[in-house]
Design a protein around this nucleic acid. Structure first.
Lengths: 195, 195
DNA sequence: GTCGAAGCGATGCAAGTGCATCGGAACGTC
DNA sequence: GACGTTCCGATGCACTTGCATCGCTTCGAC
């Protein structure tokens, strides 16, 4: 056996570079050369890890999708004792990527979403990601409020979170306003149960 | 005076071509040559109308933004006699671009939104568009239901509509499900007033 | 040691990019 | 009808793109 390399970790390293570049100048700014330079490997290494550019993008999307989902669940297990209402709020805030330090992830995510509208392989990954998130949200909602249709409420919340992310990114809303909107929506969901 | 050309209409013609191409393969598929070919003019003509590619994209975004806004207001004046609740529902459905025949516009819109996250000049146009829509929505909501904070309700509705559009585009939701979510949200808005 | 396969990095290549240039066609003015 | 301005469309150019190629290094098996 000749020289061995941890392919998996190198793929992650490259995916990280892809995300950085996509954050800075959109998916159009992601070229094999720039990715290689950013990841501090040679272009040959990139080509060895991914047979084609599309394969690289698909992997990168999966990578960041996992990271976001992981943060949501981490946030959930981190504060398990509190009320389901609080947990739901935290999870939603997390998935909306409203915090300044996650703005980069939001930009990358948006870039991929737009590309997915014309690229089935990317859309597939996004769908499975959203499906997972929706399941989690529906369960949380079912616990937090005995809404007649938790699935619908989850779909609403997920779409709202995504829309807010977008609006913050393009500067139509400030993060604070987005949080306010989110809070208002959750409160209404909550009050409805109470009544 | 030599040969005269209606620049304004030609610009619209080119913008139309930009939108068609962006619908088919995203903004990355929009090249000067392809735009010229699709608009059935020469590349020289495109360059005469727009000094740079960015200027062309900015114009195209303004073009489609106007079209969408126009459809919303058209839908409003078209059915003025009905209740404000119905009008609000129509306007929201319209802006969500859920109808199959507007799916292309939705893809184009999403492509521009993603690009705007890294391009200030595009973001500027989007902001003014959203600001206009939000004003209309806030007014409608104020008429339809005496919500304590119509502005916040409008922001919520707009973000929800955008999120639903996105989710339909990537195939996470069917148009029917999106309509269902929208309807549920509006109903809650309405009931809240009634209570 | 020697060998050979696995991986590396530089380079090549054809295609495509945005933009500049330029000769000539088209048309109102005199 | 000649003229000059405005516009046109083809071509050129420098550059970048994704991908293929090809010596060379590296390292474990024997």
């Amino acid at each position: 056996m000749p020289k061995q390399v941890d392919h998996q970790s190198r793929r992650r390293q490259i995916a990280e570079a892809v995300c950085q570049l996509a954050d800075e100048s959109g998916l159009e700014g992601v070229t094999l050369r720039d990715v290689a330079a950013r990841a501090e490997v040679s272009m040959g290494a990139v080509q060895r890890c991914f047979a084609t550019k599309e394969e690289m993008l698909v992997f990168a999307l999966g990578h960041i999708g996992e990271r976001i989902a992981a943060r949501v669940t981490a946030r959930l297990v981190e504060s398990p004792a509190q009320s389901a209402r609080t947990a739901l709020g935290h999870a939603t805030t997390e998935v909306s990527l409203l915090q300044e330090e996650h703005r980069a992830e939001a930009r990358v995510w948006l870039a991929f979403v737009a590309q997915a509208a014309v690229s089935p392989s990317l859309a597939e990954i996004l769908r499975s990601n959203y499906a997972g998130l929706q399941t989690v949200f529906a369960r949380l909602i079912a616990e937090a409020a005995d809404t007649p249709d938790p699935d619908r409420a989850a779909r609403t919340l997920l779409a709202l979170a995504d829309g807010l992310t977008t609006h913050v990114l393009i500067g139509h809303l400030s993060p604070a306003m987005a949080l306010d909107v989110l809070d208002g929506h959750l409160n209404r969901l909550w009050d409805e149960r109470a009544s």
